[in-house]
Amino acid sequence: MTPAPLLAIDGLSMRFGAQPLFDGLDFSSGPGAVALVGPNGTGKSTLLTLLAGIATPQAGSIRIAGHALAGAQHQAKARLAYVPDESVAYEFMTGAEFLGMVDALRGTRDAPRAAPLLAGLGLAAHVDKRFGAMSLGTRKKFMLAAGLMGDAAVVLMDEPTNGIDAAAKAWLADLIRQQAASRLLLFSTHDQGLIDATDARLLRLG
């Protein structure tokens, strides 16, 4: 029996007022790296929020590993992780507290296994620092660590290399390339270097 795609989009439509972002979008994928590309304003971030279940499409359906995001939300969301472009942590939280909060919200115990991610992204010295005292790049790295820790079959990332240093970009590209054999990593980006380094397929909007 052929396994269900990790992500299946069927007839997805979304507009703001009279302006359509996408209409009747179809896409499916198993494991791999997929770069979501297109000019600004074509709906890349909006599409990621739809795929993450944060927003609801006006038409169409989304399935995560065979589970409908609309009808089996718990099962679908248990199989995905989302990395927003901007930090969603409270200013008073430390990096360690934020990862613990993500664990608690997911009902998992992945934070203790995040040490390789923290080391690779250069975060080991920042785990006890509060977000209010972190640089934007360090905040973004903690968002990446939170999304990538654990075993989510589908990882969605919005502009993952925005604001991070060259060493972290190179490490992240290597990680995506390694993990693409077993999970789907779908990321919006304007970073051609990341696309080239990960040998990502393109999903183009606009």
Rank of each mutant, 00 (worst) to 15 (best):
F92T: 13
A78C: 07
D85P: 00
G71C: 11
G95D: 05
L69D: 04
V88S: 03
V102A: 13
K77N: 05
F92E: 15
D85R: 00
T94H: 09
E91G: 11
G53M: 10
E97Y: 07
A55N: 13
V88G: 08
H74T: 14
G100K: 01
L80D: 08
G53K: 06
I64C: 08
Q73R: 14
A59D: 12
A104Q: 12
G66T: 03
I62N: 08
H67P: 08
A55S: 15
P112F: 05
A72E: 15
M101E: 12
F92Y: 13
G53E: 10
A96Y: 00
V83A: 11
A111R: 03
L99F: 04
G53R: 08
P57M: 04
V102T: 10
A55P: 06
A81G: 10
S61F: 04
I54P: 07
G53S: 12
G53Y: 05
L80F: 03
V83H: 04
I54K: 07
R109P: 09
L69T: 02
V88M: 09
A55R: 14
D110N: 11
A68R: 02
G95Q: 01
G53V: 12
A89P: 11
Q75T: 13
V83T: 06
G95S: 02
R63L: 15
V102K: 07
A55V: 12
Q73E: 13
M93Y: 07
L99N: 05
Y82N: 04
A59Y: 02
T56D: 06
Y82S: 09
A70C: 05
V88Y: 04
E91V: 14
A72H: 10
A65N: 06
M93Q: 10
Q75P: 09
D110T: 06
D110F: 08
A96I: 02
Q58G: 14
D85W: 01
D110Y: 06
D85E: 14
Y82I: 08
R63K: 14
A59N: 09
Q75F: 07
A70W: 00
V102P: 09
P112V: 02
P84S: 02
V83C: 13
G71H: 14
M101P: 02
A111W: 00
F98M: 10
H67E: 13
A104K: 12
G107L: 00
G60N: 05
Q75S: 15
P84Y: 00
S87Q: 02
G95A: 01
G107D: 00
A55W: 11
A65Y: 01
R79D: 13
Y90Q: 15
S61G: 13
H74Y: 13
A55I: 11
S87E: 01
G53F: 09
I54H: 06
A59R: 10
H74V: 14
